[in-house]
Nucleic acid binder design. Structure first.
Lengths: 223, 223
DNA sequence: AAAATAGTGTCTGTTAGACATTATCGG
DNA sequence: CCGATAATGTCTAACAGACACTATTTT
């Protein structure tokens, strides 16, 4: 048995969604010390009596604090050290998660604050580092996977899909190249329905071919 | 303050090197229970009084048990749960590391067992999962970065470099395409020296242009 | 000269990027 | 018919993969 004090073990989650089409971080006000009342990532202690593993901890915290159905959850990185938490040597297993906009409506609005990713304020602990890493991971995976589609409703048009990719990646994409790439990768399947709206040609609706994340054989064009 | 017991916090490291040109995993025999005497990854408790963070824990463990100078160290994933360790709810921050073959000579040979990656036996805890994930990460990064070069001496020929890439990736590469890719990415720099040996044309020696990992703008050919 | 490996050249099919064109809706 | 967005087509440059060929050493 160890002679050493066990570190504090917590889980933090960077939760992303779309608000008015823009990539948005969901934060919450801390209910306890330290930093009580401050805006921070969703986070909490590992409950060794009820959590199967740290992914379960993350899901429990988001369920308790927001009541949110996640479309994607992935472990990001584990942050650790003596100084990152005033309570002492700590270890935070960080996750990032995506939520579809219409799912977020069902969350407890009083416990969720939505901040556009360009306007994230200074956060307690090393939460700004976590957000930066989560964004980098999100952008990285967006360039070679179906990840951004998990921010959309179950069915969507190709224009909507291109728009989310552009929002996540942060730059414009060529329509023709984008469609070629997405269709050649077989990650989406047309559904028997069209969207009519506005005075223009109706758009084909699609869904993800697979409920899980699909990786492409090459990168999305960098335009 | 939490009402919950803190989980056990450990660090495990999958250490890779080359032996006779082949990718090899370095293991050690456990000095303590549980699984005392069994072959396992290098691992140990986080020492909150002396370790700056978990990367420092990993370096300390490898220093103590092997006396090894690492050429590369990267956090891999954090494994957690109630059942993975007989001592109780535990959390292992897993790392993987690369060592240059000539550096391994300086390690304590009695504490290191070298196993070709095709012949890794059943290991305690979830160490086989860690090894699999480490290999997958290593192979993934090999296809778009200078990572395999960290398994070579500071200077090397292009033939040696291609050989390590092939060993890590597990398949042959086209010589012409490989050289084009590597040289176009600017990750290596020729040094003022040639290697003469064998009855053939001497080879140009190179070194990495940067001490750090360099990523390519596209994948290495899949041949 | 022969053997062996280092290093270069060339052809071809595929793909990304740019951009133009056609299609189909609502009004 | 017009405005708007959906969807498709075309051209070109860049690149990967395959493979042939040349270069320089030792024996």
């Amino acid at each position: 048995m160890p002679r050493y004090e066990r570190p504090i073990a917590t889980v933090d989650a960077a939760l992303f969604t779309l608000v008015d089409g823009g990539l948005t971080l969901a934060l919450t006000r801390r209910e306890r010390e330290p930093y009580k009342g401050q805006l921070a990532l969703f986070g909490g202690y590992v409950h060794t009596d009820e959590d199967e593993d740290t992914a379960a901890t993350a899901r429990r915290i988001l369920r308790e604090k927001g009541g949110i159905a996640l479309s994607y959850l992935e472990q990001l990185y584990t942050f650790s050290g003596k100084v990152r938490d005033p309570r002492g040597w700590s270890l935070s297993v960080a996750y990032y998660a995506l939520v579809r906009p219409h799912e977020l409506q069902s969350g407890d609005a009083r416990q969720i604050e939505l901040i556009p990713i360009g306007k994230v304020p200074a956060l307690p602990f090393d939460h700004n580092r976590i957000v930066e890493l989560a964004l980098a991971r999100l952008r990285g995976k967006a360039s070679y996977s179906s990840l951004p589609a998990f921010l959309l409703p179950p069915t969507f048009t190709l224009s909507q899909l291109q728009d989310v990719y552009e929002r996540v990646l942060g730059h414009a994409l060529d329509k023709s190249s984008f469609r070629r790439k997405i269709e050649s990768q077989g990650v989406i399947t047309p559904v028997e329905q069209m969207v009519r709206g506005g005075r223009h040609r109706p758009a084909q609706l699609y869904r993800l071919s697979d409920r899980h994340l699909a990786e492409f054989d090459r990168l999305i064009s960098t335009a």
